[in-house]
Amino acid sequence: MKFLVMSDNHGRWQKVQDIINALKEQVDFIFHCGDSEFPSDDPIWEDVDSVVSGNMDYDPQYRKIQTLETPAGKVLVLHGHRHGVNHSNTQVLDLAQEMGAQFAFHGHTHRLYAEYKNNVLLLNPGSLNHSRGPIKEKTFAIITLESDAILVDFYDDLLNKIPRLSQSFNR
């Protein structure tokens, strides 16, 4: 099973559409962690399984937090600005555990990371608009779930895999 996770594109509609069109047949679920700056009824969301509001999304129809059951487990999706992600992922982990989620995806910081902690995969896919921190590429993530491993690959906004950022976690 594969998950595509993106966030923080800040209005780059064509970029999001290009990624969805290129990869929707290769992944099982698509998640967007907010700050799209699109209307909640934009047709772009037809192929996206879960999308939440970010601090730059003002459409009240967006959900602030969403969970989705998948065959691989429950996924928690949020933006993170209400959960202290600028300082740590502790609040996100606590919420994931409280909700029984095996995966917790967020954005907001524009800094990608993947961490497997207490049987929860915590992930920020980075930003499709402007990266902050040591990784300069504009990024999104694809998670491949195997029976005994979780593989996380980050891609730049031109759909090129960035091998130096790949990570693997034992399940």
Rank of each mutant, 00 (worst) to 15 (best):
D42C: 14
E98M: 13
H87L: 11
C33G: 08
D47H: 15
E115L: 14
W45A: 05
Q61V: 02
S53W: 10
N89Q: 15
R132V: 00
R12Q: 14
V27M: 07
D49Q: 14
F154I: 03
N160Q: 14
S53H: 13
K24R: 11
T67Y: 05
G80F: 02
S88R: 06
S7N: 09
Y113K: 03
Y155A: 04
L128F: 00
P71F: 02
H10C: 03
T90A: 12
S53V: 14
D35F: 04
E98I: 07
H130N: 08
E69H: 12
A114L: 09
F29N: 09
D59K: 02
S168H: 06
G73R: 01
L23V: 13
G84S: 15
V77Q: 00
D157C: 07
N118W: 02
P60F: 04
H79Y: 07
P60E: 05
F105N: 02
G133M: 01
P125S: 01
H32Y: 12
M1T: 15
N21H: 10
I30C: 05
L145K: 10
L158P: 00
T109K: 04
F140G: 00
E37K: 02
V152G: 08
H83Q: 15
D28Y: 08
A149K: 15
H87A: 09
E98W: 10
L145W: 12
R171D: 01
K15L: 15
V85Y: 07
N89M: 13
E46G: 00
P71Q: 02
F31H: 05
H110C: 04
D18I: 05
V152E: 08
E69M: 13
T139R: 02
D42Y: 09
F3C: 00
